[in-house]
Simulated assay, not measured.
Amino acid sequence: MPSIGTHLRVAGAVHCIVVLPAGAYVLATVVAWPLAVSYALTALPATLVGGIAPDVDHPSSHAYNLAHRWLPVLVGGSVLWASVLATGVLQDGFTQTNVSDTYALGVVSGVAAVSTWYTTRESIPKLRPPHRGIVHTARVGILFGTVFGAYITCLLWTTHMSSSPEIGTMWGAAFVIGYLSHLWRDGELSYQ
């Protein structure tokens, strides 16, 4: 099994050879060339994460340890952010609301976030499939990339950084390409 460093180097090379030129070319139909190139460059972390993601099913791998540590934090934080946005606490009329209502909404948001964090943290070891099983398939990589791209799009939209889906789509595609580079390096890239 190749090391995490090997997978990161392969994913970085694939990003420079495939994602950067293809992503910039496709995005240039929507935005100006300099912006298209910068969007494609900023997707490098997505390619690198995709390059190590298939090893998340091995309990002693670096990818599994990172996922076990940080995925619950990411999921719980996302639930907290979404619940705060849904309750309207951050909207303009916040100063006019009743303090007890705001407190109750904060408690509900906090409980939802902590519950999600705990459930995710406890579920990761229990739901981990056997190594080189379903996680080492292109279908799962495409599924993960789609979810990842949708997550990035929603994150950018809710923070008002971007209302267009191009960046999230670029990151999702970069993740899939990094994932496929991992499968290719392991000699497990099949067309099934």
Rank of each mutant, 00 (worst) to 15 (best):
G141N: 11
V14G: 02
A53Q: 05
V56C: 14
K126Y: 01
G12E: 02
I167V: 15
A28V: 01
G12Y: 12
G88S: 05
V26T: 05
A13E: 02
G12I: 03
L35R: 14
D55V: 11
G93H: 13
V140Y: 15
A46G: 07
N98S: 13
T146E: 07
G178K: 04
S83F: 06
Y179N: 08
I177A: 09
A11G: 08
A53K: 05
A67R: 08
Y191S: 01
T6W: 10
R69E: 03
S190P: 00
V111T: 04
A174E: 05
T29H: 12
S61V: 03
L189H: 07
G178P: 03
V147A: 14
F148Q: 04
G178T: 07
H182W: 07
T102A: 12
S162F: 04
V79R: 12
A24M: 06
S38T: 15
G76R: 07
W184V: 02
R132D: 11
G88I: 03
L27H: 03
A46Q: 10
V73L: 15
V26Q: 00
A22M: 13
V140D: 02
G110A: 09
M161V: 03
I52L: 13
A63K: 07
F144Y: 10
H62P: 03
P54S: 12
P21C: 03
T97V: 10
G145N: 08
G106Q: 06
T87M: 06
P21N: 07
A138P: 00
A28F: 01
L8Q: 09
S163A: 04
P2L: 11
S83G: 06
N98I: 00
A82I: 06
V79F: 09
G172C: 06
W157R: 09
H68W: 11
V108A: 15
I142F: 09
V49W: 12
L41I: 14
V49T: 09
T153N: 02
N65H: 15
W171E: 09
Q96L: 14
L41S: 07
L74K: 00
V99W: 09
S164M: 12
L71K: 08
L90Q: 07
V114I: 14
T47W: 01
V111E: 00
L48Q: 11
L80I: 02
A138H: 00
S60A: 14
P125D: 06
G50Y: 05
S162D: 15
H182L: 04
I4E: 07
I142P: 00
D92R: 15
W171R: 02
D186I: 02
H160K: 12
P54F: 08
V31G: 02
P2S: 05
I142D: 02
G145E: 14
P165S: 05
G110I: 09
Y64Q: 10
G23T: 12
T6H: 07
Y64V: 03
R9P: 00
V79M: 04
P165E: 04
